[in-house]
């Protein structure tokens, strides 16, 4: 059982730790907890850790998944507690298990956004109508330059409701192929219906699913 998976939360202050820094943070937590982490062999050994689907800086998550390897049997049930005792604020490990599916099989991601409006928030029905359009092409900048991504079909199961800050929006986005950053939903408003755009939006990941919409483990 050398291949293992940890599910953890990254919330509050920890939301601002970048992907690369997080790997470092987690590696040190493992060392403090005395977990027998497996290292790559070679001239420059590094811990074999990978985060299944990298998270944008500033976004919170209740469902981060991290794959790693160990050199000997460990108590899976005890590990989250051991790690939590030596982790920074906002990083909280929930469970550790042997993976059932490969990370590449992650397809959908349930997330929740809070749209903050400083003035009056638009009608729920207006936002709902926007996201139900047959085509929502959003222009985004990627490493390869500017490109257009079609959101329709890649985001589904919208749930909208009013909240104190403005509007709370639940939705399921394609997590991989294509990877849809939920922030594109706000960008789409700015580009296609600026009158509906919030003054600020914050996002939280809730759970990963396979292509069959069963919970990913």
């Amino acid at each position: 059982m050398d291949k293992l998976r940890l599910r953890f939360e990254k919330t509050g202050k920890a939301a601002y730790i970048s992907h690369l820094d997080l790997l470092h943070v987690v590696q040190r937590a493992f060392l403090r907890a005395g977990t027998p982490l497996k290292y790559s062999e070679g001239f420059n050994p590094h811990a074999i850790i990978s985060i299944c689907v990298p998270l944008s800086v500033g976004m919170e998550s209740l469902c981060e998944l991290m794959d790693f390897r160990v050199t000997r049997e460990i108590d899976l049930a005890a590990l989250p507690g051991e790690l939590n005792a030596v982790s920074p604020e906002g990083i909280r490990f929930i469970e550790c298990y042997e993976p059932q599916r490969k990370a590449a099989e992650i397809k959908w991601l349930r997330c929740e956004g809070v749209y903050e409006y400083d003035a009056l928030a638009p009608e729920i029905s207006e936002l709902d109508a926007f996201y139900r359009r047959g085509s929502i092409p959003v222009t985004r900048r990627t490493k390869r330059g500017e490109g257009v991504l079609e959101l329709a079909g890649n985001v589904r199961d919208f749930e909208l409701e009013r909240c104190e800050a403005g509007v709370r929006l639940g939705c399921t986005v394609s997590a991989q192929e294509p990877a849809v950053n939920p922030e594109l939903l706000v960008k789409a408003l700015a580009q296609l219906a600026p009158e509906l755009g919030p003054d600020f939006a914050s996002w939280k990941r809730l759970g990963f699913y396979g292509s069959d919409m069963t919970a990913f483990r």
Partner: peptide, 23 residues
């Protein structure tokens, strides 16, 4: 966290410098 701070942190470089909360 202060609401104004929450709004500017995602827009600046290396925001983890400004939050504290380290081990």
């Amino acid at each position: 966290m202060d609401k104004r701070l929450r709004r500017i942190l995602p827009t600046v470089q290396k925001p983890a410098r400004y939050t504290g909360g380290e081990y």
